[in-house]
Amino acid sequence: MKALIRKDLRLLAPYWWLILPGHVLFSANGVISPEFLFWIGVALAASFTVGLAVIDWRFDADRFVAALPVDRPAQVRARYVGAIGAAVLGTALYVAYGSVIVAAFPARLGWRTGAGAWNSPEGIAVFFLVAAALVLILLPLLFRLGLVRGIWSFGFVALAVMAVAISRVSNAGAEAPSQALVEELAVFVDDRGAAVAWPLVLASLMGLIWLSARLSIAGFRSREL
């Protein structure tokens, strides 16, 4: 498992010079609005997982890796550790970029402060949850179907989720989808009380990770390499 995670980092090593400036450059667009920063940040966090899948596909590596002394559940777990790690890192960067932007352009429109703002506990939690949810949906598809078919199916799933989200957002009347999610979480936390709501959120996240990983392991096991 340690070897697998180190392998993934080693695979990205030749690209760091591209990834790091690219990350800053993309995130700089977040200056337009918190909504932009939110979705760019989420996409960048997910690109860790997608990037590794592309590398494996590009170098036809599935059989090579499977011939090493690894078992498939460990391969799946390593990818989850990496993906969740990337979501955590992405969340930290989201907060960091946001702080810089707010400090540099204090009067910027759309950067509200206080309850329900992008940098409130709810705002940060929603970023992390969305970033995590994305890879939790994506990974079982990649493990079961491989890169090309996996990404295709993910596209369909994402479209369906977006359709539901847009209808909900327009009902709620919020101006931006991420904002609507933040508000919903804020309401949820208010209703139950922080002491109940946050453990509940955490528990559902763990449940989701567990379920997604089970699906991935089952899908990957039955795949013939």
Binding site: R6, L11, I55, F59, D60, A61, R63, A67, L68, P69
Partner: peptide, 30 residues
């Protein structure tokens, strides 16, 4: 597999790495 050495029809993978880095990547597993 920890007791098997292999060269597949694609003899190696991750060719974007240098010989040494590929060696380190594989070394971690054994």
């Amino acid at each position: 597999r920890s007791r098997i050495g292999f060269v597949l029809d694609r003899p190696i993978s991750y060719e974007h790495l240098s010989v040494t880095r590929l060696g380190r990547l594989v070394a971690d597993f054994y």
